[in-house]
Amino acid sequence: MNEKKIHKNKWQTTIFLLIIIFITYLSTAITDFNFIDSIATIPAAIGWMFTNLMVTQESMAKMPAIMEKLGETIFMSIAATTLAAVVSLFLALLGSKTTKVNNIFSMLARFIASFSRNIPVVAWSLILLISFGQNSVTGFLALFVATLGFLTRAFIESIDEANQSSVEALTATGATYFHIVSKAVIPQSLPQMLSWILFMIETNIRSATLVGILTGTGIGYMFDLYYKSMNYNVVALITFTIVIAVIVIELISNKIRKVIL
């Protein structure tokens, strides 16, 4: 019977692969995407990168300005993430099966979470641009809203995973809702939640660059500016600093994670 099952699985995999190949073929045909041609352009593109995207002495002069904008972007990401985390915590407590107050609030919290999560951060920036215009508030709000959905969802899972049994026990001792949340649920889930917050800060620093291009703020705006004026040396330097910053932030948060988990 086991052999049969494996056999069946093999067949399923083959059929699945065939379907994928067919869909790929179909979509390239529809979109006029020529695979061979695009591969042929790769060497030329790499060549262009090496000749144009070089950090030169003059571009280094822009370093202080770049660092300032980079700092601005990083702080905006951190601020948006931490504020979203605070709001998410409340939404997650309402939304979680273990700690919900009643079904209506629970549904509402889950709805807000999935609504904000299922619209990508770029779309949020464009939507918010209309009402808030090109300034840093727009970027901040876009990151905030997208983060809110993601963190609420992650927090709900952390709470449900870790606390069902202790919530039952504390309810049985006659503890109140706030006793249970503050002395069992939060202490138990906090490390997991902090880990998600760190992850979101990393993600948001990357997104903030993109959001900055759209909303005209931070390092993204600078990137856009020099890109459009075809000063590729500065563009290279900016890209380089972003990569370094992201790596440094990742290293730091991995260190923090090791300590708290």
Partner: peptide
């Protein structure tokens, strides 16, 4: 109900403690 529960202790198969505390 709260008062009732203070008068009744409960012990569980999986102990139901807060593990990190």
């Amino acid at each position: 109900l709260r008062k009732l529960r203070t008068n009744i202790g409960m012990i569980f198969q999986h102990y139901n403690l807060v593990p990190r505390l």
